[in-house]
C-alpha cells in the first residue's frame, strides 16, 4: 500500500460572518487512499485554524461531515480522494445546499432536525426493532440489496441534492418523508395531514437524486413512492367510511 502521493489543490468554500462567500485554495500533498475529510482536517490542523467544518465519527455513523465535493453530495469521511479527483487536479469542497451556512463548510441542521423530530424518525435502534426490510438470501449478498431505515444518519445529503428542495424552504424533503414512511400511516395516522400536503409528498418530482447520493442506502425515493401509496389507500378508504 501507500503508493505515490498526489499533489492536489483543495479549493474550499470560505465564508465568515459579514463576508461575501469565496473560495480559498490550499495546495497539499495527499495519499490518494485517504478520505476527503482527512484532507480538510489537515487544512484546519496545519494551514488555517479558522476553518469551520462539521465532523465527528469519521466512519459514516454520525452523518456530520456531509459536503459537496466537486458538485456532488458526499459523506467526506468515507469518500477516498482517489474517487473524486486525480493527481495534479483541483478538489472543490462546498457546504451542503439548502441549509443555512454557519461558516465556511459548516451548515445549520436546525430546521431539518426539527422536521425529523416532528415525524418521529427513529435513529438508533436495537436490532430486534430494526427489521431488515428485504433480507438477502445470503449475507455475502450485495449490501445495496437490503435496507434499514435505522441506517439513516441524518446527514442531509438528500436535501442538498434534491432539486425540489432548492426552491422551497417549506418542503419537508426526502429524509423527513422517509422517516415518516418508516413510521407508517398505520402506526401513526397523525402523519397523514403532514405528508399529504403541498409541502409534503407531492412536492417530490421524481428526480431520484436523494437515492443516488444517500451514503446509507436508505433509498428515500422508494420510501416516498411507498408513502404515496399509503396515503392514496388511506384517502380511498375514507371515501367509503361513514363519518
Amino acid at each position: 500500500m501507500s503508493p505515490a502521493k498526489w499533489n492536489i489543490i483543495l479549493k474550499i468554500h470560505r465564508q465568515k460572518q459579514g463576508e461575501a462567500p469565496h473560495f480559498e485554495e490550499f495546495p497539499m500533498q495527499v495519499d490518494p487512499d485517504e478520505y476527503v475529510l482527512d484532507a480538510v482536517e489537515r487544512v484546519w490542523a496545519f494551514m488555517d485554524r479558522s476553518l469551520c467544518f462539521r465532523h465527528a465519527c469519521h466512519h459514516s455513523t454520525c452523518g456530520a461531515c456531509g459536503m459537496r465535493v466537486n458538485d456532488v453530495e458526499k459523506l467526506t469521511c468515507i469518500t477516498p480522494i482517489r474517487e473524486v479527483t486525480r493527481d495534479g487536479a483541483t478538489l472543490k469542497v462546498e457546504p451542503l445546499r439548502n441549509f443555512p451556512v454557519v461558516s465556511d463548510l459548516a451548515v445549520d441542521m436546525g430546521t431539518f432536525y426539527s422536521r425529523m423530530e416532528t415525524v418521529g424518525a427513529r435513529a438508533v435502534l436495537p436490532v430486534s426493532e430494526a427489521e431488515i426490510e428485504n433480507p438477502p438470501t445470503t449475507w455475502d449478498a450485495d449490501e445495496s440489496q437490503y435496507i434499514r431505515l435505522a441506517d439513516c444518519i441524518e446527514c442531509g445529503l438528500c436535501i442538498s441534492a434534491c432539486p425540489a428542495a432548492a426552491t422551497s424552504t417549506e418542503y419537508l424533503g426526502p429524509a423527513v418523508l422517509a422517516g415518516a414512511q418508516d413510521q407508517g400511516l398505520k402506526r401513526n395516522l397523525k402523519l397523514l395531514e403532514l405528508v399529504d400536503s403541498e409541502d409534503g409528498l407531492w412536492r417530490c418530482h421524481s428526480a431520484f437524486e436523494c437515492t443516488a447520493v444517500c451514503p446509507s442506502f436508505v433509498d428515500p425515493a422508494r420510501r416516498i413512492m411507498d408513502l404515496r401509496m399509503q396515503v392514496i389507500e388511506e384517502r380511498f378508504k375514507r371515501l367509503f367510511r361513514k363519518p
Binding site: 500500500m1 482527512d38 482536517e41 466512519h59 459514516s60 455513523t61 449490501e143 434499514r148 435505522a150 441506517d151
Partner: peptide, 29 residues
Amino acid sequence: PQRRMVVVGTTSFEVDSLDYVPVLEDHVK
C-alpha cells in the same frame, strides 16, 4: 456492529502533535 457496518478496534500508540494524527497503514493491516 454500527449501523450496517462492523468496526474493528483498536491499537495504541503515542504521538507528538494532537491536532492531526495520521491513520497508520500498518495498524490498519
